[in-house]
Amino acid sequence: MLEARLQTGALLKKVLEAIKELITDANFDCSDNGIALQAMDNSHVALVALLLRHDGFEPYRCDRSLALGVNLVSLSKVLRCAGNDDIITLKADDTADVLSLTFENTDNDRISEYELKLMDIDSEHLGIPDTTYEAVVQMSSAEFARICKDLQVLSDSVQIDVTKEGVKFGAKGELGSGAVTLKQNGNVDKEEEATLIELQQNVSLNFSLKYLVNFTKATPLASRVSLSMSSEVPLLVEYKMEAGYIRYYLAPKIGE
């Protein structure tokens, strides 16, 4: 059985907000390592890989690996019934036909209990090859969200060019073109806002902005984001949390 108590329930609410528009149903794979999820969007263009490590919960107990098949829209609806400061406890027994959720307020005088019906989801996991990326950009997650949203005004695609000087996001469309360049600035006073680039080789890649904007729903989870790129391989967008991560992979657009 699974028992996982999350002191900051708001974290789980934010995680659901970050994935529910990209994927509809997914298995939460519970093991002694923690709770993981891997799922592709319906059009097989993007993939979400989530890990909530066991040490982020207190207590965390999972005697036997369990796959909890969840409709993410339903789960996010139930999680909206939890207060932002509530402690959330997830429980499931080995038959895994329901997920029990308990929300306790901080004064411990209001306890709400919900049960969500689970489903059988036949999902196959994809093997993600170990990749040494040619370019890794670390930047403010809020800045990344702003750039994606701004450029979406112009086009449904963005070209990302990374050199050792900086990273340029450019878009061209019917109404015109636009570009935002962030210079590498590791010396700025505000570490949170610095743009840092590790580069083996310059890269220039095209991606769908619709998906990138969707990924930025994870912005409330982390102040920093990393973009890992190599020519003609999927982009990795990673938001690191205190005890885990949310990673998005996006297949590139490639010229014929």
């Binding site: 196959e124 994809l126 093997g127 993600i128 090859p129 769908s208 992979y249 490639i254 014929e256």
Partner: peptide, 14 residues
Amino acid sequence: TPVQKSLLSFFKPK
């Protein structure tokens, strides 16, 4: 114009 690739051409089912 660039064409959207499928993720399945990069990542294979385990």
